[in-house]
Design a protein around this nucleic acid. Structure first.
Length: 469
RNA sequence: GGUCCCUUCGUCUAGUGGUUAGGACAUCAGGUUCUCAUCCUGAAAACACGGGUUCGACUCCCGUAGGGAUCACCA
């Protein structure tokens, strides 16, 4: 068998979204795990729909995920300039398998409406002209189909049975001279030696027509792999921007790890048959298989993404993580050195789902927040105690903290001792100190937090709190 | 509407004639001498429905319902 070659062939009509990326991941995994090649081809034969910058965006999105095409990017518009598609069209014309469409768009529309009125499916081939004019390149060129039954094998969908009624004379070359997707992608897949055509289910219905064309061309078909769509959370429609299908690069901006994104998308509608949920890209390369892709569409679940993302963040060595988050520190951190920030990061690593949470999680490590009395008054346990008692308790804590080194070990030892001395419950004493020193409802462990904050800052903040009490 | 595809906890899924229908996310409860998170334990939670076939159906067949895709000089 020849070397596996797959391609991802998006049209440059906007950003790359979740569903498209997953298809790309599947194609990439298929190529790479077989020692094959993955190619990026831009399907830009519709000049009207072309969006400026979309191509760069696609390339960048894939690059972020670590998906590198093995060959230079291919653009259909460039290939059209070289008359590649014309050449193949001539072949079909000479074999009497293509003809010039003599009708105007309006006339075809009339046929269509008539069919609708007769409640019959519209088939262009019912109107196929007896003696079509010679094709001059100014009118559409149509495929002369040979309707028949097909049993099409799709690696994911299984065997698809279709009747001759789905085969029709589709347009090969538009009146603007550009080939349609239907024609161009087949020519390109053939010339580029694509062995596995992996694409979304919107093309499933066209498969029999493509097969008819392969036959007319006398060429061997690739393996067909049809991947179901990803639906929005409610599951009532294909994911689109409106429903929160964000640009894949939005996730980069939020600070999701690319390997988490790959893990999430690859396991949306696919699993290896075991109970493994977390996969590194390397593991996916090893374990992925097309046969285990789900036939039905899957629903996008942001919470699952968050969980997977947190998992990947936790598994990073601190040094590595520190590199990755460097663009996510807020302004207030610029006066702090690497060592300090690294310690802070170490404390919040296990509670971060994506890097954009970093400022919120770490704010009090970098600046004194104003005393927020509601933290006390709204606290389940603290609000039960009279202010005077809280004040005494906090003063006592301050005394203790003044006398010790701020190492986590020492801190937790002394804090526990203080618990005994005051006879207080941890929830009261620790919450009190936490609120005083962080002005936040939650933080990493108290001893660790105080250690990183340092003696001076901690005592200063306790003083502030005391004044406010 | 025609054609094609799909249907197991809320979600992602395991399951290929005999299982207490398993796991994960999310949810809830408890534990890890404080909060949040992590981690651990536990709970609640599903075979869309109706007929067959069979000694026996989540598994096979046929309907019904629901969902999705497609029916362009878009991809």
């Amino acid at each position: 068998m020849s070397k596996v070659r797959t391609r991802f062939a998006p049209s440059p009509t906007g950003f790359l979204h979740i569903g498209g990326v997953r298809t790309a991941i599947f194609a990439w995994l298929t190529a790479k795990q077989n020692g094959g090649e993955f190619i990026l081809r831009i399907e830009d034969t519709d000049q009207k729909r072309r969006v400026e910058g979309a191509e760069e965006h696609i390339v960048e999105s894939l690059a972020w995920l670590g998906i590198k095409p093995d060959e230079p990017l291919v653009r259909q518009s460039d290939r059209a300039k070289d008359e590649v598609y014309k050449k193949w069209a001539e072949k079909l014309i000479n074999a009497d398998r293509a003809y010039a469409d003599p009708y105007s768009a309006e006339e075809v529309q009339t046929f269509r409406e008539q069919a609708a009125k007769d409640t019959k499916p519209f088939l262009y081939r019912n109107h196929r002209p007896d003696s079509p004019p010679k094709w001059d390149g100014k009118t559409p060129l149509r495929f002369k189909s040979e309707p028949k039954k097909y049993i099409t094998k799709d690696e994911v969908m299984g065997e698809l049975k279709t009747g001759p009624e789905v085969i029709d004379d589709f347009i090969l070359i538009k009146s603007d001279g550009y080939p349609t997707y239907n024609f161009a992608h087949i020519v390109d897949d053939l010339e580029m030696g694509i062995t596995h055509v992996i694409r979304g289910q919107e093309f499933l219905a066209s498969l029999p027509n493509y097969r008819n064309l392969y036959e007319a061309l006398g060429e061997k078909e690739p393996a067909f792999i049809t991947v179901p769509h990803i639906l929005n959370e409610q599951g009532n429609k294909k994911l689109s921007k409106r429903d929160g299908a964000q640009d894949i690069l939005d996730y980069r901006a939020l600070g999701y790890l690319p390997e988490a994104m790959i893990n999430f998308l690859a396991t949306l509608g696919w699993n290896d048959g075991t109970e493994q949920e977390i996969f590194t890209p390397e593991e996916l390369l090893q374990k992925f298989s097309l046969e285990q892709i789900q036939k039905g569409s899957a629903h996008f679940d942001e919470r699952r993404l968050a969980w997977i993302s947190g998992h990947h963040i936790r598994s990073k060595p601190l040094e590595k993580l520190y590199e990755l988050v460097k663009d996510f520190w807020p302004e207030a951190t610029k006066n702090y050195d690497d060592n300090y920030k690294k310690k802070v990061l170490g404390l919040v690593q296990e509670r971060m789902k994506f890097f954009a949470e970093l400022p919120e999680l770490t704010q009090f490590f970098f600046e004194d927040l104003p005393v927020n009395t509601e933290l006390m008054t709204g606290h389940k346990q603290l609000k039960k105690l009279p202010k005077e008692e809280l004040k005494q308790l906090l003063e006592k804590a301050e005394e203790t903290l003044k006398q010790i080194d701020f190492s986590a070990k020492d801190l937790s030892k002394r804090l526990n001792k203080l618990l005994e001395e005051t006879g207080q419950k941890p929830v009261v004493l620790f919450s009190l100190i936490r609120i005083a020193t962080t002005q936040s409802p939650s933080s990493p462990g108290l001893a660790e937090t105080l250690e990183v904050l340092g003696k001076e800052t901690a005592l200063r903040r306790i003083d502030q709190q005391l004044k406010a009490l």
